[in-house]
């Protein structure tokens, strides 16, 4: 399946674009996406943390992704 992934902060610099389409096996979960990103882009190993938001909520590693989800990469936040 093709999942649309939006990237903020340093993750946009790593992937090179705000909006990306990532090919994942059917039934892939949040952890699968993280692992695939780590394998494809070695710079992800440098981050202090990486969270994935699914439909505007922090997703846990076991959450299953679908093509309809809004998936967003959340590197360490630094508001305030």
């Amino acid at each position: 399946m093709k999942v649309k992934v939006l990237c903020f902060g340093i993750t946009r610099d790593i992937l090179g674009a705000f909006e990306n389409t990532i090919e994942l096996p059917e039934g892939a979960n949040v952890l699968d996406l993280k692992n695939q990103l780590m394998q494809t882009y070695s710079d992800f190993h440098k981050l202090s943390s990486l969270q994935i938001a699914v439909n505007e909520e922090y997703g846990d590693d076991k959450q299953i992704l679908t093509e309809k989800d809004e998936v967003v990469l959340i590197p360490p936040v630094s508001g305030g």
Partner: peptide
């Protein structure tokens, strides 16, 4: 303010004379 800095998806980039850095990213 403490929780905002931990959980709210906002990012800041520090811009220096000779470059820029995403704060807390690494």
């Amino acid at each position: 303010i403490d929780t905002l800095k931990e959980t709210v998806p906002i990012w800041k980039k520090e811009i220096f004379e000779d470059g820029e850095v995403w704060v807390s990213a690494t």
